[in-house]
């Protein structure tokens, strides 16, 4: 074993679960074939475009969610942030009539919302699931309070390009997602930040002993997540030409499902952006395809819930739930 020369090229980095990825890839192809069989127009340009538009907001949220789950945390608050940003955008536009100002404030709101999460999780060290659960309702609640649960409209026509325009024949949000995905993948694969994410996910203590500022990494992650939520809110409002306080409901679940399906370990460390993209495709195709096949959306919800559970159970890398948490205690 020791003497055996192994070609450098054939060696894969150990942080990626290839078997998982290939299973998901197989599942994806199977789903595509299934969809084209049970529906008539699955592969029509119109359907694919519509599907992309409907699903890109979740897809954008799944990217920072990958980073956050890699560090053994979670961000449930994204749906609340999307709602809050959407309402702020429409409200400020209504009050001031200045869409540029509205967009600027929306983005700042997203960043601040993320920063609050980051400070609470990173610096005050409150378990992320409970902290972001609280802020999810806080942000969503602010959206509800400000809008009094009314639908807000009145945005300028030009703004709708973001959600319904095309660039080189493809929906604009797809381009946005593509750029973002390439950026996220590059950061994870090739940068110091990406490697730090993994270390924190595997063992936060050894990260501290390597001089990594763990709290700051969490903060950056959540700020990025908040900013992406703001972006998703812009696209959402532009796409449906209105803002509602229930915008983004369920986005966090779909994003988490996509990330976990994509092979990111729920206990951190293992995972790739490419995997998440596969996960996004799978969730998106299921949601859309089953609707096309006139399967009720409730069944889709049930299927996705089961898929989430099954993935975690089968991939096995779950961190042992409650029991492991206590082993970390000194």
């Amino acid at each position: 074993m020791k003497k055996k020369r192994v070609q450098e090229k054939t060696i894969r980095p150990p942080e990626i679960k290839y078997t998982h990825i290939s299973i998901i890839f197989g599942l994806l192809i199977f789903t595509c074939i299934l969809m084209s069989v049970i529906t008539d127009n699955f592969f029509s340009t119109k359907n694919l475009t519509g599907m992309t538009r409907n699903f890109m907001e979740t897809a954008l949220l799944a990217l920072p969610m990958t980073f956050i789950i890699l560090t053994n945390s979670i961000d449930l608050s994204v749906s609340g942030t999307v709602a809050m940003c959407a309402i702020f955008l429409a409200k400020i536009n209504l009050v001031t009539g200045n869409i540029v100002l509205a967009i600027a404030i929306t983005v700042i709101t997203g960043i601040l919302a993320g920063a609050l999460n980051g400070v609470v999780v990173g610096y005050i060290k409150i378990p992320s699931f409970i902290a972001t659960l609280a802020t999810m309702f806080m942000y969503g609640g602010i959206a509800q309070g400000v809008s009094q649960a009314e639908t807000l409209t009145g945005l300028p026509k030009t703004f709708y390009i973001l959600g319904s325009g095309y660039f080189l024949g493809l929906p604009i949000q797809l381009w946005i997602f593509a750029v973002a995905a390439i950026l996220f993948s590059f950061v994870l694969r090739r940068t110091e930040y990406g490697r730090n994410l993994r270390v924190i996910g595997f063992n936060p203590e050894s990260a501290v002993y390597a001089g990594i500022n763990v709290a700051k990494v969490h903060l950056i992650n959540y700020v990025v997540s908040g900013a992406m939520a703001a972006l998703a809110a812009l696209i959402f409002v532009s796409r449906i030409s209105a803002a509602k306080s229930n915008a983004g409901v369920g986005y966090e679940t779909d994003a988490i499902i996509a990330v976990v399906l994509g092979g990111t370990s729920i206990s951190g460390g293992y995972g790739t952006v490419e995997g998440t993209i596969l996960g996004i495709l799978l969730v998106g195709i299921l949601r859309n395809g089953l609707t096309l096949a006139r399967v009720s959306s409730e069944i889709t919800t049930i299927i996705l819930g089961m898929l989430l559970l099954l993935t975690i159970i089968i991939s096995g890398n779950t961190g042992g739930g409650v029991i492991k948490k206590h082993k970390k205690e000194k």
Binding site: I299, T301, I313
Partner: peptide, 26 residues
């Protein structure tokens, strides 16, 4: 699911929430 199949409580109950809600509507 949480204890025997080692799924983190948060994820497990989130998934079950969706499953139950779906089932009720169905």
């Amino acid at each position: 699911i949480i204890v025997k199949l080692h799924v983190p409580p948060m994820i497990c109950t989130l998934a079950l929430y969706n499953i139950y809600r779906g089932a009720i509507l169905l």
